[in-house]
């Protein structure tokens, strides 16, 4: 169990992310899987129809493509760093083990 725990964890994450795609009925006329943040904005408009946002973003990504570029960049920065750190840590453990066994650290 312990040996396969990480694999099971990854599988569970993928399943949980894919499950909604199969379960939720999609309707051609209604956009599904929109952001919950946007839906909250709609709810605000229902509760307080007179409310006007009093401040606008300085800059908005000019298109959905540019927006996904920036999100991908954000995730890549994070993923890159974690990968680097794990690589360093694994190498450190390996070299320490080799050193303890009296082998040269290559």
């Amino acid at each position: 169990m312990k040996k396969h725990q990480n694999l099971l964890l990854i599988l569970a994450v993928i399943l949980l992310a894919l499950l909604p795609l199969g379960v939720v009925q999609t309707d051609k006329d209604v956009e599904t899987f929109t952001g919950a943040d946007g839906e909250a904005m709609v709810a605000i408009n229902q509760i307080a129809p007179d409310y006007e946002p009093w401040f606008n973003p300085f800059w908005e990504p000019p298109s959905g493509e540019i927006e996904s570029l920036l999100f991908a960049l954000q995730a890549a920065l994070g993923g890159g760093f974690i990968g680097y750190y794990l690589g360093v840590s694994i190498t450190r453990v390996r070299m320490r083990r080799a050193w303890q066994q009296g082998q040269p650290c290559t």
Partner: peptide, 26 residues
């Protein structure tokens, strides 16, 4: 370095929009 990992983890996770059973994503 570990502090960088904590920041990196937040960077990745908050960039991932994942579909959910309610038919919206977050």
């Amino acid at each position: 370095m570990l502090l960088g990992v904590a920041a990196a983890f937040t960077f990745i996770l908050s960039a991932l929009k994942i579909p959910s059973v309610t038919g919206s994503s977050s």
